[in-house]
């Protein structure tokens, strides 16, 4: 190996390591502190589960958790559905509207969460005369996640051979049967990926949910409220739990991809 390449490896590797340190040090610390009695200077360690107990006993957090799950599920269902249909349309059919549709589907990427939140708030209130509720929060989050779901579907489906559908049709499968027998069994991993990502995004979203939910609490809005009064023990516990679940979900995803069950658009 030449010196230049060695240097490139060294620099790249060092930067990657420092990125991991940057990204994971706060997470590791949060998890560590969540088990400590002293939140400010937990050294030497004195272990406790008190913060988790407090979190579990708190009625608001339980309500927030339930609402966040509901919100995540609703949004994920909506955007997985529209992203699946949209990506099939774009990849399977030639149309002069194709470029326009792709642009529309990617629009949400160009609008900050905050703007999605406030514009939906005012639109619902002034134009549709709807109060903020779970439905409008689901929709607002789903709009935001649609681009991500769409991109995941595109990446995965770009390798799907649409002539398989032709084959099914020639051999007598009507469109619905064709989708259920051939397309769906082959694309469900992509749909699962889109669903998971949009669920996690909506579950954890603050700004869109905040402006569209009125007084209904979700985990992020409760966390936001309590963060205003400084770092409490139950906040550490909550962050540790959510990080644990997200990292666990990614570990499962990694194993599925590693053993080629699904690829979520990744290429080896």
């Amino acid at each position: 190996m030449k010196a230049g390449e060695l240097l490139a490896r060294l620099i790249g590797g060092t930067l990657l390591l420092s990125l991991y340190l940057f990204l994971y040090a706060p997470i590791a610390y949060v998890i560590y502190v969540s088990f400590q009695k002293d939140l400010n200077w937990p050294f030497p360690p004195s272990w406790t589960l008190a913060h988790y107990a407090a979190l579990g006993a708190d009625q608001t957090y339980r309500e927030g958790l339930w609402n966040s799950i509901l919100l995540g599920l609703g949004s994920a269902v909506i955007c997985t559905a529209v992203a699946t249909m949209g990506s099939i349309a774009v990849l399977k059919y030639r149309s002069r509207w194709r470029a326009l549709m792709v642009v529309i589907f990617l629009c949400p990427l160009f609008v900050a969460d905050l703007l999605v939140g406030i514009s939906n708030l005012l639109f619902n209130r002034q134009v549709l005369n709807l109060p903020g509720n779970m439905g409008s929060a689901m929709i607002g989050n789903a709009v935001h996640c649609t681009s991500f779901a769409f991109l995941i579907m595109l990446a995965q489906l770009s390798r799907y051979d649409w002539r398989l559908d032709d084959a099914a049709m020639v051999f007598g499968a009507r469109p619905l049967r064709c989708f259920l027998e051939v397309t769906l069994p082959l694309i469900w991993p992509a749909m699962l990926g889109a669903f998971l990502v949009s669920f996690i995004l909506a579950f954890n979203n603050l700004e869109i949910s905040f402006y569209n939910l009125g007084a209904i609490p979700t985990l992020p809005t409760i966390a936001w409220g309590s963060l205003r009064f400084g770092l409490g023990g139950e906040l550490f516990a909550l962050a540790a739990l959510v990080n644990g679940v997200v990292l666990g979900a990614f570990a499962v995803m990694y194993l599925l991809m590693r053993y080629r069950v699904v690829s979520f658009g990744h290429r080896e």
Binding site: L23, P26, Y29, V30, F203, P220, L231, A239, V242, F250
Partner: peptide, 21 residues
Amino acid sequence: LAVAAPFFTGVILRITGIQGI
């Protein structure tokens, strides 16, 4: 995946982490 994963914890809880540091 290890680079992408932390993003999904959500803004508020990630800020909680940063504040912790």
